[in-house]
Amino acid sequence: MKQHLGRQSGVQNVEVSLLDGKVDITPKEDGRIDPAQLLKATYDSGVTVAEMDITARGKIMKEASGGLAFQVAPNQSFACMPNDLSKSSESLSGTPATVTVRGQLFKKPAGKKKAQPASQLQLTILQIQKRE
């Protein structure tokens, strides 16, 4: 799995802990990496992803539907699941301010042994680490 993930586009380094099933992925300097592709690659290597968290710097945007999105690249953004932290950052939408957040992009539904991840990942903001 480590080699398989290491071959994915934008991956600088992969660390796997067999003890607790933790996989740490460091993106390359430009940060151009596709979490959905990594999820698929992980499933393809024969293991089940229980959850995926990211730390990223980006901008809070307002979607046409009225919901919030977190933009990490000009052509890459994740819809934000509404919670207290997303509400508190709503005032930043449409401003040039960047924030560094830690959030959950995927969590396996409870009770299911194996679940294919959704193609459209949604971000649940867990922590706002920095506002710039």
Binding site: G21, P27, A50, I54, T55, R57, G58, P74, P96, T100
Partner: peptide, 30 residues
């Protein structure tokens, strides 16, 4: 002029945006 400055700021902040770290917890690893 103000619009141009705002656009430059907006583009600069998007250019700085990036994913810094990804962490997964997986099951079934041998």
């Amino acid at each position: 002029m103000n619009k141009l400055a705002y656009l430059v700021l907006l583009l600069a902040s998007v250019a700085q945006a990036q994913i810094k770290h990804i962490e997964m917890r997986v099951e079934g690893m041998t």
